[in-house]
């Protein structure tokens, strides 16, 4: 072979090649030794989430320590009022309207499939709660911790008030999360669409939800000082 001219430059090129080969070999070795990258990413995300959660709990703890007892109880009272539904609330959220199917049931088919049931409403409510809805109402009835959603003949009873379709469900929370929860593939909206049940979803920056109007009375449950069972 004739390599008379430019031997040195060829040697240089060969050196570069050898260098690249060695680096690549080492990199491949490193990748094999490491834990799968995806796993690392998942764990990193989890750590970051936990850290931020930890931080917010720490902040809350500091707030409670710093604030006087009265301030703290005031804050707590505010939270309880919001949670119990004793006040009307407003904020960003969505309004869902659900009505019976406009399709006619064919002969021999159960026409119940084309109607809106309490179960359908429960499914929607469940999705909304899972997506972080802070306040929900059905046809003007605020849902509280003790509200029922129950079949009552051709109507649905909420807070012992009956209403017929169309049902209007209002929810306050992150518009993005709520919409996605309802519209996700294979989710509630998809299932109801199969039967032609009419469902419309509107998002609004100012959804108003009424207060829970019935009196609250606790006859059986009393406050307990025990923090854990059996102590």
């Amino acid at each position: 072979m004739r390599f008379e001219k430019g031997r040195l430059s060829i040697a240089c090129v060969c050196m570069v090649l050898g260098f690249m080969l060695a680096i690549q070999f080492r990199t491949t070795q490193d990748i094999k030794d490491n834990k799968p990258l995806q796993r690392v990413e998942v764990l990193t995300e989890r750590i970051q989430k936990l850290e931020s959660e930890n931080q917010s709990l720490q902040d809350e703890l500091n707030d409670i320590r710093n604030s006087s007892g009265e301030e703290h109880s005031q804050k707590m009272a505010q939270d309880i009022v919001l949670l119990s539904g004793r006040t009307a609330v407003e904020g960003p959220g969505i309004v869902i309207t659900i009505d019976d199917s406009s399709q006619k049931s064919t002969a021999g088919e159960d026409m119940n499939l084309y109607l809106v049931h309490d179960e359908d409403l429960l499914k929607v409510i469940n999705e909304l709660r899972a997506a972080g809805a802070e306040a929900i109402s059905i046809n003007g009835q605020r849902l509280t911790a003790t509200s029922e959603i129950r079949c009552a003949g051709p109507t649905v009873s909420v807070n012992n008030v009956r209403s017929a379709p169309p049902f209007e469900i209002r929810a306050i929370g992150s518009i993005h999360d709520l919409e996605n929860a309802i519209n996700m593939r294979g989710g509630v909206a998809d299932t109801l669409k199969v039967w032609g049940i009419n469902m419309t979803l509107q998002s609004s920056n100012n959804v108003w939800i009424p207060a829970y109007k019935n009196p609250i009375s606790y006859k059986y449950a009393t406050k307990s000082a025990k923090q854990e069972e059996g102590k």
Binding site: F3, R7, L8, I10, A11, C12, V13, C14, M15, V16, L17, G18, F19, M20, L21, A22, I23, F25, R26, T27, D30
Partner: peptide, 19 residues
């Protein structure tokens, strides 16, 4: 010379700490 260059480059690649 080419083979020497290859060997030298390989050695260098193993010695440097980068990947």
């Amino acid at each position: 010379l080419a083979i020497c260059g290859l060997a030298l480059g390989g050695a260098l690649g193993f010695l440097v700490p980068w990947s």
